[in-house]
Amino acid sequence: MKRRQLMGYAGAGLVTTLVTSLSSHRQAGAQSGGSLTVQWLGHTCFLFTGGGAKILVNPFRTIGCTAGYRPPKVAADLVLISSQLLDEGAVEDLPGNPKLIYEPGVYEFQGIKVQGIAIPHDRKGGKQFGTNAAWQWNQAGINILHLGGAAAPISIEQKILIGRPDLALVPVGGGPKAYNAQEAKQAIQVITPKIVIPTHYRTQAADNATCDISPLDEFITVMQGMAVRRSNSDTVTISSSNLPENGAIQVLSYKF
């Protein structure tokens, strides 16, 4: 049976809302063609806009590796949380009243099917930092996979669920809670996404003594041979009609 429970953020607390037959109230264009705008808000936090929906993934508190970023206080219709650690699960200051999903399972929201896939958040089977939810959904005709803070290899069963994403957001900076460059490469070889946006790496904003993740250069080096696109912006627009079949790395620039 499909999981049809959404957690809605309301004021200072969380309320449970039972969602019924949302497919009959499908929002026009939610999964159809068009274009998807992806904005990097720092660390593993991204805002996806397209198909009549705004989906925010992993808003954070400014602490540790996120201390130098601006708080991602942006409006969204739906918020996906990979874990309830401070760098991936801060919702108390978000504007409006977005719906919130933070547990693996299968959900529907405005005609969009959202699937949360459980992957350990550490290299000890989740015993250190628990379970990470990798999020998969289709928005504006783009199949999206956000791996959050995945730290374990992708299993055959998970690969079957994931298929081949058009866009994969992959942690690359290592540390105890996410893939390092070589582990990220192995995950990419398994899922073969058309576009990879690297996440969870050391930047000028994440350059402090308490941050134990590596810079992007290490990942780019191990991915030698894969095309790299560098943007001067924190935003990229993607459409299903111009996806690179052989794969490319898209690097965004955080705006300080």
Rank of each mutant, 00 (worst) to 15 (best):
H121C: 14
S231P: 01
F60E: 05
A206V: 00
T237Q: 10
G13R: 07
G42E: 10
S21Q: 13
L41M: 12
D217W: 09
P153Q: 12
S21K: 12
A168Q: 02
Y102I: 05
G89V: 03
D122W: 13
G52M: 01
I160M: 11
V196R: 10
Q250V: 08
R202L: 11
C211R: 07
K159Y: 06
I144A: 01
T192S: 12
C65R: 09
L216Y: 10
H43A: 08
I162H: 01
V79F: 01
L145H: 02
S214A: 15
G163T: 07
V196D: 08
Y179Q: 12
D93T: 13
T62K: 13
D207N: 15
D212F: 15
E88A: 10
A140V: 08
N242P: 00
P153V: 12
Q39W: 02
A118M: 04
A209L: 14
D166E: 00
I154P: 04
D207Y: 06
A12Q: 13
L161F: 09
I101G: 03
H121W: 11
V172D: 07
I213Y: 11
V38W: 00
D212W: 13
H43N: 04
W137S: 06
Q84H: 11
A75P: 02
A248F: 10
T221K: 15
L36R: 03
G125H: 04
A118L: 04
S240R: 10
R70I: 10
Q27L: 14
M1L: 12
L243M: 04
N242E: 06
Q5K: 14
A187W: 06
Y179A: 10
S35E: 04
Q5V: 14
G126N: 09
E88S: 12
V79E: 03
I112N: 05
I81M: 12
A150H: 10
I142V: 04
D87R: 00
A209C: 09
I188E: 03
G130C: 08
K2T: 11
G52P: 01
E218L: 15
A76M: 03
D207P: 11
V170T: 13
R61E: 11
T192Q: 15
F129A: 08
V114K: 09
F109M: 02
V170G: 05
K113Q: 14
Y179M: 10
W137M: 14
A30F: 00
E92I: 05
G175W: 09
M226T: 11
T192L: 10
G149C: 15
L169R: 00
S240I: 01
Q27H: 15
G8Q: 15
G29T: 07
Q115H: 08
G33C: 04
T210W: 09
I81T: 06
L216I: 10
S155W: 11
A76V: 01
L47V: 07
Q27G: 10
V114H: 07
I191E: 01
I238V: 00
W135D: 04
A181T: 02
V57G: 01
E245L: 09
L78G: 06
S32W: 15
I63R: 05
A10C: 11
T210Q: 10
S155D: 08
D77N: 11
D234S: 15
V38Y: 00
C211N: 06
Q31M: 13
L252V: 03
